[in-house]
Amino acid sequence: MYRQIQEVPVELWETKLEQERICDEAEARAGHPLPRRYRQFFGTERSHIRVSQREYESIADWAKMFEEWLNNDELQKIEAERHKYFTWEREELYYVDSNSPTPKWMEYISKDFDINQEKKENNQDKQIQVNSNNHCAPGKHENGIPKLRVMYRHIQEVPNELWTAKLEQERRSDEAEAKAGHPLPRRYRAAFGTENSQIRVSEREYDSFLDLARMTEEYMVNKELQKIEAERHKYFTWEREELYYVDTGGEPPLWMKFAAKLFKK
């Protein structure tokens, strides 16, 4: 999963969205996967952060499309222009763990794994099965007001030797959360970028900010989930939490239009 983070000046958001629309049309013609886009709500970044994320079938596909992108005149013209709409950017690459085989090194490095002992069960064949509601279209409340779709992002540093235990804890957590009706996360591990290689990222989208608040309150009084909450702290050294607006599929907020006029030079 390729993740691009940019800081967009308040007065440029409206033109930035138009530039993204033009870019998406050109990339669709070139056969590239289109990104899902977010804006920072709460967390470590500033409030004018744009995040674009797109998943590729493989690292080889990503490399192939990147080389094609470098030789596509239309996309290179857009690449030159897009730098007008942000003050800085950084790029990150993640492994997609959801619905993927467990990497073998996680078994080898675990505390309780004897590399010379033949195991009856091969965790390489296990898959983390995730039926996430990520990428659903936004809806409306009963009173007709559009729902404010949000994405909750959870970042943790997992010690090398605890990865297999961490995956098992995540599996049990997913089963319990599915029973409680919570949306399940899509999970990643850092490959390249600003984080170290032992970073676990979990992302889940909620149909509305109200749904997130309601499910958080339900979570606090669910005994099964609270037991898992207590246990999960054994499997990471630190964590941080972030919340994003989900822009993909929704209407731009009204303040962007007002800001374009207010800050017009």
Rank of each mutant, 00 (worst) to 15 (best):
Q156I: 06
P35K: 03
K126M: 08
E218C: 04
M215G: 03
R214C: 05
P146M: 04
S47A: 09
Y108M: 14
R240W: 14
Y56T: 10
K126I: 09
Q226R: 15
Y108L: 15
E242W: 05
A137S: 11
A80Y: 05
N160F: 09
N160H: 10
V150D: 00
E7S: 15
G144I: 04
Q53F: 03
G139E: 05
K64C: 01
F192M: 11
A80F: 08
D114A: 08
L184Y: 08
A191V: 03
G139C: 02
Q40T: 03
E74F: 00
K264H: 11
N222W: 06
E91T: 10
K257Q: 09
P101M: 06
I109S: 07
Y56R: 10
P159G: 06
Y245M: 06
R37N: 04
H48F: 14
C136N: 10
R204E: 01
K104L: 10
E68W: 00
C23L: 14
R187S: 07
N72E: 04
N116P: 00
E57H: 10
T194A: 09
I78H: 02
E81C: 04
E241I: 11
K227T: 07
T164R: 14
G144M: 05
W88Y: 12
E107A: 13
F42W: 08
I145N: 07
A63S: 06
P33R: 07
M106Q: 11
S202W: 01
Y95G: 02
E107T: 05
N123K: 13
A137Q: 12
Y56A: 05
G181C: 08
D24P: 00
R204F: 00
S197K: 13
E25W: 03
N196T: 15
A60S: 09
Y94M: 01
N72Q: 07
F42C: 07
D97H: 11
M1V: 06
Y94Q: 01
P103W: 05
P35C: 05
H233D: 07
A26P: 03
F41C: 07
K223Q: 15
R37F: 00
P33C: 09
L17S: 04
E205G: 01
E224V: 12
Q198V: 00
P33G: 07
M106T: 14
G144T: 03
K84F: 14
Q40R: 02
Q156S: 15
E81S: 07
R189W: 02
E92I: 03
T194W: 05
H233Q: 13
S202G: 15
G43W: 06
I199D: 01
Q127L: 13
L34R: 06
I228K: 06
W238C: 09
A28M: 12
K179M: 08
E177Q: 13
T237Q: 09
K179V: 03
A178R: 09
E67L: 12
E242D: 13
R153I: 11
I199W: 01
A260L: 01
A137H: 12
G31M: 15
R187N: 12
E161S: 10
R37H: 04
H135A: 09
E25K: 12
L212T: 00
Y244N: 02
R39S: 11
S110R: 12
E229M: 05
E157P: 02
N116S: 10
Q4T: 05
K140C: 13
V201W: 02
